[in-house]
Amino acid sequence: MSAPCFHAGDRVRVLDLARTGHVRTPRYARGKCGVVERVCGVFGNPEELAYGRWNGAPIPLYRVRFRLADVFPSGAVEAGARDDSDHDTIDVELYESWLAPETTA
């Protein structure tokens, strides 16, 4: 269960799940596609830990890198006047249950 499904370099899509509570997936990343930068290891699931449920299996955590222009298209327009912003990126830590291979719809 805790062996990571994804590896550095894999392209992934962030799921847009209707979960509430202590969710650590920023809204701006949901539905977006990026590349796994590294596997961080396995950690307790904050969506469980925050409510005192300590016994769940640890789950893999990843750093996923997105093109900034993919995540914030309107920000990219603002930044359009600025040089070099084409290659700007944002790295986000995401738990495995929020990720799918990019190729799945």
Partner: peptide, 17 residues
Amino acid sequence: ALPPGTAVRVHDSTADM
């Protein structure tokens, strides 16, 4: 002021790192 040709990498500490 960043030198020309510099890409910016933002890192969002959303979880355990």
